[in-house]
Design a protein around this nucleic acid. Sequence first.
DNA 1: TGCCTTTAGTAAATCGTGTTACAACTCGAT
DNA 2: ATCGAGTTGTAACACGATTTACTAAAGGCA
Lengths: 357, 357
Amino acid sequence: MAKGKNSTPPGHVNLRMLADHLELSQTTVSLVLNNSPSAKSIPEETRKRVVEAAQRLNYRPNYFARSLRQSRSMSVGVLAPDLSEGYFTRVMSGVVQELTAAHYFFFTACHDWNRELIEKYPRMLVERAVDGFLLLNTSADHIDVPVPVVAISAHSQVENVTNIVLDHHAAVEQALRHLFDLGHRRIAFMRGPQAIPDSDFRWDAIQDVSIEIGLRIDPACVIRIDDASWSMKTGYHPMAPEIGYKPMQALLERNRDFTAVFCFNDIAAIGAIRALKDAGLSVPGDVSVVGFDDILSAAYATPSLTTVRQPLLEMGKKGAQVLLERIANREEAYPAEITMAPELVVRESTGPAVGKS
Amino acid sequence: MAKGKNSTPPGHVNLRMLADHLELSQTTVSLVLNNSPSAKSIPEETRKRVVEAAQRLNYRPNYFARSLRQSRSMSVGVLAPDLSEGYFTRVMSGVVQELTAAHYFFFTACHDWNRELIEKYPRMLVERAVDGFLLLNTSADHIDVPVPVVAISAHSQVENVTNIVLDHHAAVEQALRHLFDLGHRRIAFMRGPQAIPDSDFRWDAIQDVSIEIGLRIDPACVIRIDDASWSMKTGYHPMAPEIGYKPMQALLERNRDFTAVFCFNDIAAIGAIRALKDAGLSVPGDVSVVGFDDILSAAYATPSLTTVRQPLLEMGKKGAQVLLERIANREEAYPAEITMAPELVVRESTGPAVGKS
DNA sequence: TGCCTTTAGTAAATCGTGTTACAACTCGAT
DNA sequence: ATCGAGTTGTAACACGATTTACTAAAGGCA
C-alpha cells in the first residue's frame, strides 16, 4: 500500500505503472495483453496474473500511443453531401450497425457539393489516419487517398474504389412496367439533380427500358430538379418536398398532357403531389405518381406512395462490411462493384390511366 | 538532389526530414511552426525559410504524435439515441456548421436507449481523447466524463453539464392558446415516450398552462407514445409516422369526444392524421391537429401541419458554440442552462372547433 | 562435461511531436 | 579581460505502447 513514485493518479494507469505493480517488464505485459504470438513462451500462471491486474487496475491502453505505433486508428471517414433525412439516415443506420460491431468509430464530413471541400475533407481525415473511406452519394473521381474507399450509390470506375449500386435497370423496369400495365402511355419524368451520381445513371436506365417496352418519351414531359434547389447553400434543403413542388409546377404550366409521373425520389414525389393538388388535379385519379427510395414517410403520405424501394439499410451494411474487409486485408483483390436488388412497392398513388385521348 | 537516407517517401514527410533538409534542429522547426512564445528570438529570416520549406514539402504534423503529446484531439463526441430523421438531422446541421468552422471533427455514437451503451460509449470516446461531448435528446445523469458536456434538449442538473433547452412553457402556451381561441375545449394529448427527456418536461408545461388558461385535461383523452415503438430494437423507427398512428387508433377506439389533439412531434402528428382519416374523421373538419418541431415535411403534408417550431438548427449551433468555448477555457464559469424561443406556425391542420355539445 | 534447445523473460529502439534546460557566440560596458 | 545580457540555436527527454534483439537459467542428451 506504500505510495510509490508513480502512485495511481485517479484518472489513468499506464503500461509502466501496471508493469511496476506486477514487477514485470512492460514488454511482458504488453505481449500478454495483446496475445502476441511471441508470447507463447509465457506460462499460464503469469498470464493470468497480468490479465487480472489489468482488469483490476482498469488499465486502458492509450489510444494515441497505440495508433502512433501501429499507424491505424480504428476509425473511418464518412463523406456525404449533407445530413439529408431520407437517404443519409437510412444508409447510415446500416453503416453504424456494422462499424459498431467491429469496434470502429467514424467521422462524418459534409461537402454540400462544394468541389473544394470534396477534396479537402478527405485530406484532413487522412491526416487523422482514418483507415478507410465511405462515400455516400458522392463520386470518387476527384478523391485520391492511400486507404480503401467504398462508394455507396456512385459509379466511378477508379482504382481503389468499390461501388455499391442499385440495379437501376431492374428498378426502372419494375416501375415503368407497373405504369404501362395500368395503361399509362404518356409518362412524365422528373430527373434528379446533376450533382447526384445516380441521376444520369438512372436516366440512362429509363431510356433503355422505355425502348425495351415500347414507350415513347416526350421531351416536353421531362423536367429536372435543379442543383441549386438541392443544395443547402441556397437556404433550401434536400429534404424539403419543395424540390419536387417547383419543377412540377413549372411542368404543369406548359403541359398537362400526361397521366403519370416518375419522380427521382419520394421527397420530390410528395412535393409533386402537392403541386398537382394545388393545380386542381387528383392523385391518382388524374395523374399517377411513382417515387423512389421508399422512405419511412412514404407509407404515411396522403395518398400513400407507390415507390421503388432501395434497400438503403442493406446498402449501408454491405458497404461497411466490404470496407472493413478491405481494411483488414489490404493486399487482397476487391470487387469493383456490388449490385443490390430493388423492389417495387405499390400503394395508393398509382391507378389506371384516365382515358383522355 | 542526392537521395539521402531519408529521401521523401512519396507519402509522408516528418519533422526530422524537414529539419534535416533545412539543416536546422527539429526543435527550431517545431518552435517556428507552432508560433511558440519561446521562438521569439528566432530571426525573421530563418522563420521564413522554415515556413516556406514546410509549405513546399507539404509537411503535415502527425496527428497521433501531436495528440499524444498534447493530449487533445480536436474532435468531440456526439451521443444520440439514433440517427432519426426529424430531430437529429436538423440539430446536427447546426452543429456541423460550427464545428467545421473551428476545425473540429466529431464522432457519432447511437445508444438506442440502451443504458449500457449510454455509459459505455462515452468511456470509449474518452479513450479516444475527445475534447468534449454533445448529447442529443439524452440525459447526462449517468454520464461521468472529465471533459465539458453540452446537452441539447435535456434537463439534467449535473455538474459539468450545460443544457440547451426550449422554452416549453412558451411553446405550449402558444399552441394551446391557438386551439383555445379556435373554440376547442376538449383537447387530446399524445405524450412523448418516457425515454425522451423532453417528454415529461413538456407534459409538466402542458399541465401548468392548462390551469393558467382554464382548460380541463380529461385523463381519458391522454395517450402516450410507447417507448418500444420508438426504439429501433423492435424493428420500428422513430421516423416512422407509425409511432403516432397506433396510439391515435387506440384512443379512437375508446373515446371520440375531443375536437383537437396536440402531438409530441410532427412525425407522430402525420401518423395521427392518417389514423383519423382511416377512422372516417376529417382534419381539420372534425379534429384539429397540432404537431411539434416543424420538420421540413410539415409544410408539405396533407393537410399541411400547424406546429410549434423548435429552432433546432440554432440549438445545434448554440450547443456547439458553447461546447467549443468551454473547451477553449476549461477553468472559466459556464452557464448551466440556455433557453431558446419557440414559434407557432399556423397551417391547414387546425380550424374552428366543431359544435358538438 | 559440453552442446543445444526451450523457457521466461528483459533492455532498448521506435513511432513523431512538443518542450525544458542549456550551450555557444556576439557585443558593449566597466 | 571580464561580466552580463541578449541572440541563435541545440541536445535530450517526455508522451505511452509495440517490437526487435538479446540474456540468463533450466533441462535434455551424448
